[in-house]
Amino acid sequence: MSPNENSNVVTKPSMYLQDMSEVEKVFQRFDTNGDGKISSDELSGVMHALGSTTSPDEISRMMEEIDSDKDGFINLQEFADFCKADTGDGGVGELKEAFEMYDEDGDGAISIGELHLILTRLGEDCTLQDCEKMIKSVDADGDGSVSFAEFKQMMTNNKK
């Protein structure tokens, strides 16, 4: 990602969360110590695990935007509200950004190895075989990897 001149704009989550149980699962992934709130350190840690070089200033801006009650933490309701926010472009830009984080080698496809690497960084206990099953479940053209079109199809769940 290249630095943006208009760096006061905070990007929305790079996924479409279809229901509250999905929101809770993602929230729990960010809430690494399990205290029911996301600190700036936890947010920074997840961003780093995803391969983002988010600066401390950017983390602060993200916290300010999401932390509506200004207690210094993001609670589940604030996170859910943020996930529901309209991005204006139908989320395509955010999806592309998420895809690029998984596509470590920049070849335009997410391989089994790349998926395994990212999930391992995020603390998931999964095998290469688990990742292969995940890839196969969305690999429409059968090439053994996930293209952006397949990723978009999976993440948007056919919704516009």
Rank of each mutant, 00 (worst) to 15 (best):
A85I: 00
K12D: 01
Y16M: 14
M101F: 03
L122E: 09
S60Q: 12
I38M: 06
G93I: 02
M47R: 06
G36Q: 04
F30R: 06
M134A: 04
S68W: 00
E124S: 10
E124C: 03
I74D: 00
I38P: 03
V146W: 12
K159R: 13
K12Q: 04
E58V: 12
K37E: 06
T127D: 05
G88Y: 10
A140P: 00
D107C: 00
T87M: 04
V23M: 14
S147I: 08
Q129W: 06
S2E: 13
I66H: 00
K160W: 02
L43H: 10
K12G: 03
R29S: 10
S145K: 11
G51R: 11
A80P: 06
K37I: 08
S60T: 04
T127V: 09
A49W: 06
I38C: 05
L122A: 10
M101C: 07
S2F: 13
Q77V: 09
S68R: 08
I135D: 01
E58I: 12
G108T: 01
K159L: 13
D139P: 04
M101G: 01
E132D: 02
K133W: 03
G142N: 06
E64Q: 15
K160H: 10
F27H: 09
D71A: 04
M20W: 11
K70C: 08
N158Q: 10
V138K: 08
E150L: 08
T11I: 11
F99E: 08
N33G: 02
N33C: 07
I66Q: 00
K70P: 01
K12A: 03
D130Y: 06
D107V: 01
M1I: 11
A149E: 13
S7V: 15
A149Q: 13
D130F: 07
M101A: 09
